[in-house]
Nucleic acid binder design. Structure first.
Ligand SMILES: [Zn+2]
Ligand SMILES: [Zn+2]
Length: 800
DNA sequence: AGCACGCCGACT
DNA sequence: GTCGGCGTGCTC
C-alpha cells in the first residue's frame, strides 16, 4: 500500500497521511514505529492504517521504519481510539501516555565542517568554524551560543562550508552484560598445566556454569578475583567471553517459589461465587472488609488464569503499594510476575513491554494505572484492588482517564473478566451492581479470627471549651495512647493535611502570605523552614520572610498539619519514637518503604500520616488508630466529601485490626452527631450508599448522572472569563439547565494561569457520546472566535 | 505541541 | 527606524 495514516505524539486532533516509499512497501505494517517529518521537525509515529488512496493534498514520505516488529497491536490501537474519544482528547495524547518514554524517537541535528580551507568572511563565521574544528556540534547548542544568528550558518551551508546531518535516536538502551563460558571438553591434563590461581578460577567457573550463566562482573565480585587470570584464560582459549543483551530487573525475585496457601472454607466458597458470577457478568465487585483475606482469593484466581496460559493484570491505586504486593505474590509466581508503573526506569518499562510481546509464557503484571497500556494479547483477568480510590483517575495531562473504567473497557476488548475489590466500594461500582451490570460477592467474615476494631467518637467541643486540649489531642486520646504504648503496642495518628500549618498570618496586621503565581496561601513547612505553595514549586525561607504589607517579622500559625502533629507527639510522648509518612517525607526513592519497615519491625511506636496510611497496609501490632480531626474530611468542598470521608475513616480504622485482641479507633470531631460518623462507627455501608445515592440523584451528581467539566485557562484573566462566558452560553443553548457555569474555581489561578470552568450534568438515559460530540463542537467554535485561539480548553470526563 | 509569520508598541 | 512581544494558523 502506498500511503500510511500515522499518529504522532502531539496534542493534535488529526492524524497525518504519508507516502510509503516503494522500498518500504513490503515491510510496512500496522503498529510499527516510523520516523516522519512534520513541519521542520521529525517525530516517531505509529502506523494506524495503510491505504491505496492518494490524498487530495501533497504528501511527504516516511523516512524510516524504526522497528520491523510492530510495537503496538491493532487491539491496542482500538483501545487508544476508544480512550481518545471517551475522554475527549487527541489520539496523540493517548499515545504519549501509553508508550514508555524509552520508545520515543528524538532527532538531533549535527553541524559538520566540510571545507577546511575556507577563509571566513566575518567574525561570526570565524567563531563558528573555530568551534567546529574539534568535531561536529549539535545544532541547538550552536544556535544557543550564537544567540540566534542563524543567518550566518545558513550562508555557510549554502557555500557548502558546513553540512547538517540529522540523526534519529531512541532513548532505550539495552543492557549488556559480559558472560563467561568455559570452553567445552577441557581435560584434566590441560588444567594441571595452568598456574594454581588460573586452575582455581577455571574450576570454579566450570562448576558455577553447570547451574547458571555466569556474568563476569558478578564472578569477579563474588569470587574475589582480579581480571588478569581471566584475561589470560580467555587468551589461552579456556574461557569464552561474550557480550549479551539482558533484561534489567530492579525487583528482587525470591530464590524459590512456594505453592499457594490453601483457602479457608469461607474463602473457598467466595472463590466459587466469584467464578459463578463471572459466568453471567464480565465485571464482579468483591465487597470484602479489611483482613477478610481478599488477596488470597485474588492469588488463587490469578494462578488459575496463568495455568490456562492467559495473562493477568493487577491494578493498584498507588505506585508505593505495587512493591509490597509484588513481594507477597512473587513467593508464588516467581519470574512470571512483572511490575510496571511510571516510576520504573524508562529502560525497564520498555523491557516489560517487550517481554509481554514475546508471548513465550503468561505473566501477571502488577502495576499502577499506566499498566493498562501494556501489549496484552490474551488477558484472562484484571484485578482492580482498592477500586474506590480516587487516585485511579489521571489528573493533569490528558488523557484524564480512570484506571478502573479504562480497565473494564480493555477487558471488553480482550474478552477478559474484571474483579473489583474494596472494603468500601465506590458509589459508582455499587450503583452498577444495583443496575445489574456488575456481579456482587460479599465477604464480611474476618480471616483468622481477627477482631474488628472498636470505633469510638470523641467530642472535641467540651475539651476545647474547658481548654483541656493539648494541641489537637483531647485528654481521652492522650489517655488511650498512654495505655496502648505502655502495653507495648503501636499507635497510628491520622491527619489529612501535610505541612506544619494550613497557613500563617502576620501578627501585626493579619496579612496572610500568598503564592505570587497561584491564588492560594502558602503553607508552613517547619522542618525545611520554608513557606511552600502546594500548587506550584514556589518556596521561600520562613526565617527571612517579612510581611508584604507591614514588613513585620512575626507570624502565627493557623491550622494543624502532620508536621505539627509530629512536634506535639514528641512533646507529649518523649519516650516513644515517632515517624511521619506524607507527601513531604516520601519523595526519596525508597523513603516510603523505609518508614513502613521501621514501623513494622517496631522501631517506631507512633506513626503520623495523611491518607497515605489508608491504603492496603497491614500491621499486626497496632492497638490504636486515631483520627485527629474528622471534620476536616467532612467539610471538604466536594460532592464526594461524605463518601470519601466514610471510605477514608474506615480504611484507616482497618489498620487497627489484629489477631486475638481487639483494636481501638478514636475519631475526634466537633460534630459527634454527624450522620456519616455514625455510619462509620457501625461500618454501615448500605445505609451510606442509599443516603448518598438519594442526594446524588437530587443534585444531579454521579453516578446517577454523567458529569464532565470543561476547564479553560489563560494568562489573561479577562480573556479567559470572556471565553468561558461565551462557551457557557453556547452550551446552555444546547444543554439548557444541564449546564452549570461558567464559574471561577476555588483556586482561581495556578502557575500564573487564570482558570474558569463549566460543568455539564447529563442524564444516564441520554447519549453521553452525543453530548461529548456537541461539547467538542462548542469548544471549537469558541477556539475559532477571534482573540480566543490561544485559550487552553480541556475536558475532564467523569470528574474526580 | 512546536514553529514561522506578521502585526503592534517602545527603545537605541 | 529595528527589536521583540504575542496572537494566529499550519503542519500530511
Ligand atoms: Zn503585616
Ligand atoms: Zn504557587
Amino acid at each position: 500500500m502506498p500511503y500510511a495514516i500515522i499518529v504522532l505524539p502531539i496534542a493534535q486532533q488529526s492524524c497525518y497521511t504519508y507516502e510509503v516509499p516503494v522500498s518500504f512497501q513490503k515491510e510496512i505494517q500496522i503498529g510499527q514505529q516510523v520516523v516522519v517529518p512534520l513541519g521542520r521537525k521529525f517525530y516517531g509515529g505509529i502506523v494506524l492504517k495503510l491505504s491505496e488512496d492518494k490524498p487530495s493534498y501533497p504528501t511527504k514520505s516516511i523516512i524510516s521504519i524504526w522497528d520491523k516488529k510492530p510495537i503496538v497491536s491493532s487491539e491496542q490501537i482500538a483501545f487508544w481510539k476508544w480512550m481518545a474519544s471517551y475522554y475527549m482528547c487527541a489520539l496523540g495524547e493517548v499515545m504519549t501516555a501509553a508508550l514508555p518514554a524509552g520508545f520515543r524517537i528524538e532527532s538531533e541535528h549535527k553541524v559538520h565542517l566540510t571545507k577546511t580551507d575556507y577563509i571566513p568572511d566575518s567574525e561570526t563565521e570565524r567563531l563558528i568554524i573555530d568551534a567546529l574544528q574539534h568535531g561536529a556540534l549539535d545544532l541547538k547548542t550552536l544556535d544557543e551560543s550564537l544567540g540566534g544568528k542563524l543567518e550566518v550558518l545558513k550562508a555557510l551551508l549554502e557555500k557548502e562550508v558546513v553540512q547538517i546531518h540529522t540523526q534519529h535516536n531512541q532513548r532505550f538502551k539495552p543492557k549488556e552484560v559480559v558472560f563467561l563460558y568455559p570452553r567445552e571438553n577441557i581435560t584434566t591434563e590441560e588444567i594441571n598445566k595452568l598456574s594454581e590461581l588460573q586452575s582455581h578460577v577455571l574450576l570454579r567457573l566450570i562448576d558455577l556454569s553447570k547451574t547458571e550463566k555466569v556474568s563476569k562482573s558478578k564472578f569477579l565480585e563474588e569470587e574475589g578475583v582480579t581480571e588478569s587470570p581471566i584475561k589470560t584464560l580467555i587468551k589461552k582459549e579456556f574461557i569464552i567471553s561474550q557480550k549479551e543483551k539482558v533484561y534489567r530487573h530492579s525487583f528482587k525475585y525470591p530464590k524459590e517459589t512456594k505453592p499457594l496457601y490453601e483457602l479457608s472454607e469461607i474463602q473457598q466458597q467466595k472463590y466459587g461465587e466469584i467464578k459463578k458470577q463471572f459466568e453471567t457478568h464480565s465485571t464482579v465487585l468483591l465487597h470484602g472488609i479489611t483482613s477478610s483475606g481478599k488477596t488470597e482469593i485474588y492469588t488463587h484466581l490469578i494462578a488459575k488464569e496463568l495455568e490456562k496460559g492467559r495473562f493477568v493484570l493487577f491494578l493498584l491505586p498507588e505506585i508505593a503499594l505495587t512493591t509490597q504486593l509484588a513481594e507477597r505474590l512473587a513467593i508464588f509466581f516467581g519470574k512470571q510476575l512483572l511490575v510496571y508503573h511510571s516510576k520504573y526506569s524508562t529502560n525497564e518499562r520498555v523491557e516489560v513491554w517487550r517481554k509481554l510481546q514475546a508471548k513465550d509464557k503468561p505473566y501477571v503484571v502488577i502495576g499502577a494505572r499506566s499498566a493498562i497500556f501494556l501489549p496484552f494479547h490474551d488477558l484472562g483477568l484484571i484485578v482492580v484492588d482498592e477500586e474506590h480510590e480516587p487516585s485511579f483517575k489521571q489528573q493533569d495531562p490528558a488523557p484524564r482517564y480512570h484506571g478502573r473504567d479504562a480497565a473494564i473497557y480493555l477487558a471488553y476488548l480482550q474478552n477478559s473478566k474484571v474483579l473489583l475489590g474494596s472494603a468500601t466500594p465506590s458509589l459508582e461500582s455499587y450503583f452498577n451492581v444495583q443496575l445489574g451490570k456488575y456481579g456482587l460477592v460479599e465477604l464480611f467474615q474476618r480471616y483468622q479470627d481477627i477482631l474488628p476494631p472498636e470505633i469510638i467518637l470523641i467530642d472535641s467541643t467540651e475539651a476545647s471549651r474547658k481548654k483541656r486540649m493539648k494541641g489537637l489531642f483531647t485528654p481521652e486520646l492522650i489517655k488511650a495512647m498512654n495505655e496502648t504504648l505502655e502495653n507495648g503496642e503501636q499507635v497510628i495518628l491520622f491527619q489529612n493535611r501535610r505541612g506544619y500549618s494550613y497557613f500563617v498570618k502576620c501578627e501585626n496586621c493579619d496579612t496572610i502570605p500568598h503564592c505570587p503565581n497561584c491564588d492560594v496561601s502558602l503553607s508552613l513547612h517547619k522542618y525545611a523552614n520554608t513557606l511552600d505553595c502546594h500548587y506550584c514549586n514556589y518556596s521561600i525561607s520562613y526565617a527571612k520572610h517579612k510581611c508584604g504589607e507591614c514588613q513585620g517579622e512575626d507570624f502565627s500559625t493557623i491550622g494543624i498539619g502532620t508536621e505539627q502533629i509530629e512536634e506535639q507527639t514528641t512533646a507529649l510522648f518523649p519516650n516513644y519514637l515517632s515517624d511521619r509518612i506524607d507527601w513531604d517525607t516520601t519523595t526519596g526513592k525508597h523513603s516510603y518503604e523505609k518508614i513502613l519497615s521501621k514501623f513494622k519491625n517496631g522501631e517506631t511506636k507512633i506513626l503520623i500520616g495523611t491518607q497515605m496510611l489508608a491504603k492496603g497496609l497491614d500491621f499486626d501490632n497496632v492497638g490504636l488508630v486515631a483520627i485527629l480531626n474528622a471534620d476536616l474530611l467532612l467539610h471538604y468542598p466536594d460532592f464526594r466529601a461524605y463518601e470519601r470521608s466514610f471510605q477514608l475513616l474506615l480504611q484507616v480504622s482497618g489498620r487497627a485490626g489484629r489477631k486475638k485482641k481487639q483494636g481501638k479507633v478514636l475519631i475526634q470531631t466537633y460534630k459527634p452527631k454527624h450522620p456519616v460518623l455514625k455510619l462509620v462507627k457501625e461500618s454501615a455501608y448500605t445505609p451510606l450508599y442509599n443516603q448518598q445515592i438519594r442526594e446524588r440523584n437530587a443534585f444531579h451528581y454521579p453516578p446517577v448522572y454523567y458529569m464532565m467539566k470543561i476547564k479553560l485557562k489563560h494568562k489573561n484573566k479577562q480573556k479567559v472569563e470572556e471565553a468561558a462566558y461565551l462557551l457557557g452560553e453556547d452550551l446552555k443553548n444546547i444543554f439548557g439547565a444541564r449546564t452549570y457555569g461558567a464559574h471561577t474555581p476555588l483556586v482561581s489561578r495556578v502557575k500564573n494561569f487564570y482558570l474558569q470552568e463549566i460543568i455539564l450534568k447529563i442524564e444516564r438515559k441520554s447519549s453521553y457520546a452525543k453530548a461529548k460530540q456537541l461539547t467538542s463542537e462548542a469548544i471549537s467554535r469558541v477556539k475559532q472566535t477571534k482573540g480566543f485561539s490561544s485559550i487552553h480548553i480541556g475536558a475532564d470526563v467523569d470528574v474526580f
